[in-house]
Design a protein around this nucleic acid. Sequence first.
DNA 1: TCCGTGTCAATCGTCGACAATCGACGAACG
DNA 2: CGTTCGTCGATTGTCGACGATTGACACGGA
Lengths: 240, 240
Amino acid sequence: MFRVLEQADLPSRIADLVLRAIGDGLLRPGERVTEARLAEQMGTSRAPVREALRLLESQGLIVSHPRRGFFVKSYNADELLEIYDLRECLELHNAQAVIAKMTDDDFKRLEAQVELLKQLGAEGRTQEQVVEDYAFHRMLCEVGGNSRILKLFDQIATELRSGIALVGRIYDNPVEIAKTHDPIIEALRARDVIRLRDELHEHLQDATTHVVEIYRQWPASPAEDLPGYPLSPIQQQKAR
Amino acid sequence: MFRVLEQADLPSRIADLVLRAIGDGLLRPGERVTEARLAEQMGTSRAPVREALRLLESQGLIVSHPRRGFFVKSYNADELLEIYDLRECLELHNAQAVIAKMTDDDFKRLEAQVELLKQLGAEGRTQEQVVEDYAFHRMLCEVGGNSRILKLFDQIATELRSGIALVGRIYDNPVEIAKTHDPIIEALRARDVIRLRDELHEHLQDATTHVVEIYRQWPASPAEDLPGYPLSPIQQQKAR
DNA sequence: TCCGTGTCAATCGTCGACAATCGACGAACG
DNA sequence: CGTTCGTCGATTGTCGACGATTGACACGGA
């Protein structure tokens, strides 16, 4: 029996929509997400909505306070630093495996990906460049071969993407950014672990400081506020 | 208003019980976990049970197959290797931060913990030794200061503990194992990053090979089986 | 004997409803 | 005027029930 169109289950679809809503800035950090409202909007009952939110919670994009409800996670600079630190942890460790396992074919694909990055940068398509940038680093994790690390990277990536979406575009100079991948390619070509790690370290350090800088000058992070029930669902207010 | 005894919510309590059941070998890897049965045993409806299982799923201890149900995660040697690889990734990265941030007081507590390990080893209390061993490494992560990494470590620890429970006691020679922490303490005392990382690497490598060895000679890993519905809830059987 | 088909029981996914709990708001009190 | 207490609406946590889907099993044909 053919299953022509594998319909994703309800919770996943709902989670996708919420994710997109966050990414598009429709749901802002700290904002409340009410089960009933979402359920109504989706035309379902609360059960699958709940599952979707719990799924997103496990991925760090939603936080829940017992008996209070769900809220879009808002990040402060410290948290972003921790996430980037973790990312660096993964990527540097992964670098070793990459050098050990990389085939010539892998290398070619990585090289091609950087070319794509440059092209997108030159054309000013920063949106897509961000996506493809992550794709490049993801490819490295794939080559590394630890599915666990790959999964973690994916999780971090979505978190960073959504956490960064609200800050607006990251890349001041797309062309510049694309070029910073060149040394990584060179290290890969030379199969030099130490150099690869150094380059990745610098690369990620740059990204970190850049993002955090932007983040700092942002309107005093939305803070982890807990709106009370009877409030209009959008506004926020301090609690406790 | 005092809240003398903060009653944990239902899902968490259920998750705890399931976790304990897994740790005690009451629920074996690959075994099916039926919502209705668990709900009946807990005297609740299926809703909180579902939440508990999804929670454990997000922690990797339970896997779910859509429309099929929940099963206790069973690990094969490769997966264990990946987990240990990730753990090493975290701990080695964390080592740097430890050296940078460790106070004298931190060091004393770490030293004391190793003493405790030795004592437990000498007394043959291997069960507690395992727990305190994790506690030691957890302390390192605490000192490191990245809450994200700490959380991940905790997750990995529970996973490994439950995944290893079925294999029986790990430590052939508890006294020996306890001693292998000494070089780590020495590296910490000298505040030598490189040495610390080397020692941790060796330490974890030992643990890895040890566990995997035991794992290999185990009755051909329970495999990721998918029991069908009408089966007695305990037995397993291949599918597809 | 082997393979395809139909039936069946078990179980999950989803639903609507109810009770418990929370914060906000306003009144009473010092 | 500031603080405490009670009430209220909104929302979550939990429940029982129903339909949908799955794999196991029995049967029949090649």
